[in-house]
Nucleic acid binder design. Structure first.
Lengths: 184, 184
DNA sequence: GAAAACATGTAAAGGGTTACATGATTCC
DNA sequence: GGAATCATGTAACCCTTTACATGTTTTC
């Protein structure tokens, strides 16, 4: 079976929900998988075309009064096969996140104490904001849980986000303690 | 001041250590910042050229008996300026890691229970391996600490890696508990 | 004698973001 | 009247990986 990139699988997965147009896919991503998967329009539209060209989905243009035309995509059985067989395969490797804060701190001896503290403090704040975002999304999912089979899985990915973010916040706290105490 | 990409700053930073050639830079990265920053030769050599072209470093070819010629790079004062002023700037945003396991779990309802458990179990094992790698690197740094001013910073980035990895392992355990119990 | 380590590089392809281009409708 | 939302798309550019190309020396 032909291999596709992860972006293609992500879009195939989203096409199993009620989000069937490029615009709707983008919205869905921004609201629910944004914390571990981002996609831009520059990827979505060309990928949708390729998906259709490969027979993984079909398009129908729907006209709604007072709304722009919509290209609605629906998975073919081949598309579902490609998605499910990808889902069954184990993950090859744990991702390496490129982290600018760590890169800067790695070269911390060329940085002033004030700068290190400022950067870490700033980063910690951003992490705290992110944590709050996760909590909000979680509450939104819990509120609409009743009519959604997928809720348990969505909550599980959010739980990951929360745990990782908390661990990162704790690290910031420890690093700030360490580097604020040091003499200049 | 002209902006460079993160890879360039990473290489400028490494050029402050005793690693002065493309080959040595690659080794250094693989041994110490591999957990938050990877670079391939395909980036290193062209970037070194660009760094020299912009006057951030100088090259000298050194010949050692019984060894291939080495291109040794040393930072100019301009290079040091570019590096230090980048270090002082705050980080714009927290990175979004693309995580294949989360992507697969997000669409967990199209996956068999056995497959989910296998994938999570496998992932947890890979995380445990990674944790051990961090512990080994940590011990190596501690053993040579005496002659290295940068050790505290290196250990701090490793601490981040350990904390995040542990949090991810805990999440795997919780997710496995949740999804093993469920009825098929 | 073969494999691993030392050493430098390029080219093609893949993946992704950003900016641009267009245009309707709805809300303030 | 202007901003935001709805809606689709392309082109240029940037970044990164992978595969290729080359050749020596050391270790097993």
């Amino acid at each position: 079976m032909k291999k596709y990139n992860h972006t293609t699988y992500a879009i195939l997965g989203i096409l199993t929900t009620e989000c069937t147009s490029g615009y709707a896919i983008k919205q869905f991503i921004d609201q629910s998988l944004n914390h571990f998967w981002k996609i831009s329009y520059g990827q979505i539209y060309p990928t949708l075309k390729a998906i259709v060209a490969d027979g993984l989905a079909e398009v129908h243009t729907s006209s709604h009064e007072g709304r722009p035309d919509r290209h609605e995509y629906s998975l073919t059985s081949k598309g579902i096969d490609v998605l499910t067989s990808w889902l069954e395969q184990p993950v090859e490797q744990v991702p390496v996140e490129r982290n600018e804060v760590l890169l800067k701190l790695f070269f911390g001896r060329y940085q002033s104490k004030a700068s290190k503290v400022r950067i870490l403090h700033d980063y910690k704040q951003k992490l705290a904001d992110r944590y709050q975002t996760y909590v909000s999304i979680e509450q939104a999912i819990l509120a609409h849980k009743n009519n959604n089979e997928a809720a348990a899985y969505w909550l599980c990915t959010l739980d990951y986000g929360k745990r990782i973010t908390l661990a990162a916040i704790d690290w910031c706290t420890a690093a700030l303690d360490q580097f604020s105490v040091e003499e200049e």
